[in-house]
Design a protein around this nucleic acid. Sequence first.
DNA 1: CAGTGGTCTAGACCACACC
DNA 2: GTGTGGTCTAGACCACTGT
Lengths: 263, 263
Amino acid sequence: MSPVQIPEARTDPATAGPIPRALAVDRTSPIPLWYQVARGLQELIEGGTVAPGSHLDNEILLSRQLKLSRPTVRRAMEHLVDQGLIVRQRGVGTRVVQQKVRRPMALTSLYDDLRAGGQEPTTTVLAHDLVGADTAVALALEVPVDTEVLRIERLRSAAGNPVARLTNYLPRTVEGLSATALESGGLYELLRAQGIVLHAATQTVGARRASAAEARLLEETRGAALLTMRRTTFDDHGRPVEYGQHIYAATRYVFQTQLVAPF
Amino acid sequence: MSPVQIPEARTDPATAGPIPRALAVDRTSPIPLWYQVARGLQELIEGGTVAPGSHLDNEILLSRQLKLSRPTVRRAMEHLVDQGLIVRQRGVGTRVVQQKVRRPMALTSLYDDLRAGGQEPTTTVLAHDLVGADTAVALALEVPVDTEVLRIERLRSAAGNPVARLTNYLPRTVEGLSATALESGGLYELLRAQGIVLHAATQTVGARRASAAEARLLEETRGAALLTMRRTTFDDHGRPVEYGQHIYAATRYVFQTQLVAPF
DNA sequence: CAGTGGTCTAGACCACACC
DNA sequence: GTGTGGTCTAGACCACTGT
């Protein structure tokens, strides 16, 4: 009846459930509290401490345990719902979802993909020069046709086998993309190091047969099936950062994606 | 200095900016207020009332105009940021982003895709029966091997040309999937009509060459490049709903995706 | 009925960009 | 400085689920 909280029934609520021990938050950190909580819960889930199918503590209890407000805890949980880690039902509670492969590919690069898969990727720069933008490049980068843009062509290999030929076009204003830098890391990594925040992309995936030269480069048979991808990446201001036309050896690479329903 | 609000300086704030007129919210509706605001703003942006690049009113002003709290208005704006419609910068404001193609493909189906593209799709059911789950199907649907599952095989055409052969496996418990229903609409549409909430999916896209039979079915040349897709779809409880193995004529279809950074 | 998540409010303080 | 968005709090009421 009374809105006053019960004076420590049995155990200290801050150490009660199996949850809170690993979830201490650092209030001096610049990282938002809700994000710290979300990461903490994510570790508990992925580490198996909280079994799939089991219920998580409810918001009010958790906020009391962590000494945070309910909206803060709530925001963390909403984040995990977006990630597909947990499921919430009014009147029922919050349950941990059966674990899947879980790769949030979204805005990663082939380099990140391969490295995450345990294969150490290597890169050979085939071309690194300035060219006039053709209509496709001009449209994607939102510059006039024939504007000089940076072209980068790379051969990406994994475990000694060629996987893809990557052709990227970028505005001349971008810096820090020397050939040596490109051979030691991914393009997106270098862009992020320049302070560019990659925010969104549109991409088109298709397939076609390899030309003789492409087959030779990728060590495929003549006429082999290739995956093709065209992608335009935008920064957080909505400006185009990069446009790429890529081909992948279909025998050695597939695109894997996790989708979450919009809303 | 005083925390008291200024007593109606000049004009009534509720009719001041260009924004609020179309943004009246219905407090009796079961639709969340923040969502009503988000839709209203989206219409203003997509209708061109608010030009790309121009600033939106700030949160405090907008909340006063709409007579809503700041967090509510804020939530609407966060939604639009997720959709890629607007961009926010601390100390600067909220600006409308240059419009792109904007297709939130995420969890739509080929049927939706084709129809949205103006091509009226047609479907021919090639098979509709019960089969024992092989290892791939069993793994995806989380049932034991050899469990009887529903198999649906369809040929999807657009503008009279075959585009894809779709093979889907579903648990026997799913209803409402008669052959006639499947020929008049998309699978996802039928599932949603059954009250199933599609929430997430994992998919793998690859490429290979067509067999003689596949080429014949899709009216392609022998050995033509095909796009392949395997997708498992999950409902909002995290349970697998559907597993599909599909092939697409690469000359007639590509996958187009909009990605937003996950952080 | 009690317990859960879903929504909303009215404040507060801070970090950052621009003048 | 001034104004902006980013974060956080401490409540409130409601809708839905299960008993």
